[in-house]
């Protein structure tokens, strides 16, 4: 599904990722953990294709295709979904209008018919229900005036509608209370399937109580320095990141 080979990436000329290698197979759930500033968000943004995040060497393949050749929207149409750490507010563009445009674009690229208005609305409502988001949010501007938790749930709601092949969740758990965290986890777990891969980028082990990963990787200073099973997350929880990075860290 996703092959990251010796990836080096820079933001504004500063190298952040320094030789990252990661293989994600269909159906797998990977957690990428690490202290602040280790490059977690850079990895998400490089994979999604944000301007200013430059691959300086190495490569990333998605289903065998080099991501570097694909525009942001082409990646989304190919089946990559990024749940944002900080979802953007877009006043004046309604959530529903946005979902319609997004679904039409992604479905068209996958050779699927656009959903008729009634079906689209029904599915959107179901997705809202799944993440405990009031249907009123469909009429509001995209993320406009949403609380932090509502924004994160809106991300998961979009993900459920778009049914991506690869879901990247960038610190989706940060700033969430336990109730909201469980709602988000329920949504993500509902999407787990043998064809779909999920990469969770997180600082905290807490999320992994609810979404149990197959693999845990520790990212530090732009490289994966340790990989293991779900028990690695528990070890990190007890010991912090310091024993791996060799630095004192107050996480």
């Amino acid at each position: 599904m996703l092959e990251v080979r010796d990836l080096h990436a820079a933001v504004e000329g500063k190298e952040i990722l320094k030789g990252l290698t990661l293989t994600v197979k269909p159906g797998e759930v990977h957690a990428i953990m690490g202290p602040n500033g280790s490059g977690k968000s850079t990895l998400s943004n490089v994979l999604a294709g944000r301007d200013g995040y430059e691959i300086t060497s190495g490569e990333v393949l998605f289903e065998g295709q080099p991501l570097a050749d694909m525009e942001t929207e082409e990646r989304a149409r190919a089946g990559i979904f990024l749940a944002f750490q900080y979802p953007v507010e877009i006043p004046g563009v309604s959530n529903m209008e946005f979902l319609k445009a997004s679904l039409e674009a992604v479905r068209a690229a996958q050779g699927k018919e656009p959903l008729d208005a009634v079906t689209l609305l029904r599915r959107a409502r179901e997705a809202c229900q799944h993440v405990n988001l009031d249907q009123q949010f469909l009429k509001r501007g995209v993320n406009e005036g949403f609380s932090g938790g509502e924004k994160k749930r809106n991300e998961i709601m979009q993900m459920m509608l778009l049914e991506p092949k690869l879901a990247l969740l960038d610190e989706t758990d940060s700033g969430l209370d336990i109730d909201a965290l469980q709602v988000v986890a329920k949504g993500v777990n509902a999407l787990r399937s043998p064809e779909r891969s999920i990469v969770l980028v997180t600082h905290y082990q807490r999320l992994l109580d609810y979404i149990v990963p197959d693999f845990v990787h520790v990212l530090a200073d732009g490289r994966i320095i340790k990989s293991g099973g779900k028990e690695l997350a528990l070890e990190l929880e007890q010991k912090g990141y310091g024993w791996l990075t060799g630095e004192e860290e107050s996480a």
Binding site: T72, E73, A76, I90, G92, V93, A109
Partner: peptide, 25 residues
């Protein structure tokens, strides 16, 4: 905002149109 829309599969031209429309909506 532009990146957010594009990351959901909406092409750049349509995304700009949506944002322009949103601005005067």
């Amino acid at each position: 905002q532009l990146f957010y829309l594009r990351s959901r599969g909406i092409d750049a031209a349509s995304a700009k149109r949506m944002l322009g429309t949103g601005f005067v909506n």
